[in-house]
Simulated scan of single mutants.
Amino acid sequence: MTQPDRLPSQIRPPASGAVALVTGGNSGIGFEIARQLADQGVTVWLGARDFATGQRAAEELGSAVRPVQLDVTDPSSVAAAAERIGELGILVNNAGVNPGGEDITGTQLGQLRTAYETNVFGLIAVTQGFLPALSRSAHPRIVNVSSGTGSLTWASGPNPQFDWERVHGGGLAYRSSKTAANAVTLFTAQALGEHFKVNALAPGLRRTNLVPGMSAGGDPAEAATGAVRLALLPDDGPTGALWSWDGTRVPW
């Protein structure tokens, strides 16, 4: 797949009745993605592991946003959500965890399993669970919220966006799970063909709950804008790539 260096500037206005699902939508980037998609006229299902938490978030965002209980690590929860939602045109796999850990010398296997269970296996389970509905859509879109820290190209060479001297080899569980998520994005795009638009987003460092106590980072709403661009790509837009929140392509 030959990819442009930047995303197209235009978006495809959502059709009447367009429906999206945002996993992990009760806070952070997912919450802002839900807000911005609703502002575009999309009906948004806000997925949250705890229904009450999701319900409060949906009520804050208005009538276009509906809560649904969805634990991406629980197959029965995924199946129930797919049955509840029915038709779907946009899937945003935003749910993610960072279980901590250091480099190979200080990371526990349990931390790796936790990261992969949500960031990789959960992403795959939700995508598979909603493929029948997405396949019925005229403009199916899948956006996987990943991380630039999972880019092997960036990790193996100097890059001005990251202090690699500080994190060199670190964050094994989280970063490798995002590398795997990037691979899943590419292989999914190849399998589903050009009718689907399947892309990953590198949102940049944001103020979210992903890292407890983190006060540094940019506004989650800025990253969400990048996800919405991918969710509303025109039909001739790219598929099978990793994109920065600002619309520039990130190397695998």
Rank of each mutant, 00 (worst) to 15 (best):
T2L: 12
L7Y: 08
I11R: 12
R12D: 11
G17D: 04
A18V: 01
S27W: 09
S27I: 15
G28Y: 01
G30E: 06
R35W: 09
G41W: 03
G41I: 04
V42M: 02
V42P: 00
V44A: 03
W45D: 13
G47I: 11
G47Y: 07
A48V: 08
A52T: 14
Q55R: 07
R56Y: 10
E60R: 11
S63Q: 15
R66T: 08
Q69P: 15
L70I: 08
V72A: 03
T73H: 00
D74W: 01
A79L: 04
L88R: 04
G89R: 12
I90Y: 03
G96C: 07
N98Y: 14
G100L: 00
G100T: 01
G101P: 11
G101W: 04
G101I: 11
G101A: 04
I104R: 07
Q108E: 12
L112T: 05
R113P: 08
T114F: 02
Y116I: 01
V120H: 01
V120N: 03
V126D: 00
Q128E: 14
Q128C: 04
Q128Y: 13
F130W: 05
L131P: 01
L131H: 09
L134V: 06
L134T: 07
L134P: 13
S137G: 08
S137D: 05
R141L: 13
N144T: 11
V145L: 12
S151G: 09
A155D: 12
S156M: 13
G157H: 13
N159F: 00
P160R: 15
W164F: 01
E165S: 14
E165W: 06
E165I: 12
H168K: 15
G170A: 06
Y174M: 05
K178N: 07
V184D: 09
T188N: 10
Q190A: 14
A191C: 10
L192I: 05
G193D: 00
V198F: 09
A200M: 06
A200C: 02
A224V: 07
T225M: 15
T225C: 14
G226M: 10
L230S: 06
L233F: 13
L233A: 11
D236L: 02
G237F: 11
T239H: 00
L242H: 10
R249L: 09
W252D: 15
